[in-house]
Nucleic acid binder design. Structure first.
Lengths: 108, 108
DNA sequence: ATACTATTTAACCAAATGGTTAAGAGTTCC
DNA sequence: GGAACTCTTAACCATTTGGTTAAATAGTAT
């Protein structure tokens, strides 16, 4: 597994959990402290802390310690990369969908 | 977890594995049989079969049994959905990157 | 110093993941 | 019918995951 490949794996793995997606959605509005991030969830703060570590490993967030609080902000670059990766399939979309339709027509 | 949310989870989970990504990349060129999909990999056919099941659950591929062979084809719709989901962060990209830059300027 | 607040680390647990080998289940060929 | 071929299912294994509670670390306030 090449390095860039591992990086994409971490980004997509981050996005594969609904809690982490909601965290990112919250952060897309504005930076938040860990406790603010936790607020809407019913899982423990420790669980949130672990999710943040996953997001941090994927470089989807940045952390800035402000006194005893950690300010967490979205770092959107990896999202762009994931977006571009999926986009690389785009040229196949219409073609493949057409082929699938024709195929289904023929075989039903 | 809402239904649509679970669906996105399955798509992103599918994409989080480099073997599965390579499988999809292969299928983006043309439909392939299971053995053709296996060819470039050194893992067992069983392992490939399991990956295909994951991709099928996420509706990223379609399977058509042709005699003893299974013809696998890319079904790009979920990729579009994932693409759109990530795109929903797009409006934040430039804004957030700017904010991050300014923030880093101020605090270094 | 003490107590309170914010967050992480440690230790644990059940379930899921990605792989293996061995054993089916259909399909084709002789 | 039986051998060969394509693919899946079953059973197993080590590691990772997403959660928990209890303890530790770090900063603030009194």
């Amino acid at each position: 597994m090449v390095k860039s490949s591992m990086f994409l794996s971490e980004v997509f793995h981050s996005l594969s959990d609904p809690t982490r997606r909601k965290i990112l959605e919250g952060l897309s509005k504005r930076p938040l402290t860990v406790s603010e991030i936790k607020a809407p969830f019913r899982i423990s703060l420790v669980a949130i802390s672990k999710h943040l570590k996953v997001l941090e490993r994927a470089k989807l967030i940045r952390r800035q310690k402000m006194g005893r609080e950690h300010m967490i902000r979205l770092h959107p670059q990896p999202l762009r990369d994931a977006h571009r990766y999926i986009e690389s399939f785009k040229k196949d979309w219409s073609r493949q969908l057409d082929a699938l339709e024709k195929f289904l027509e023929r075989n039903t």
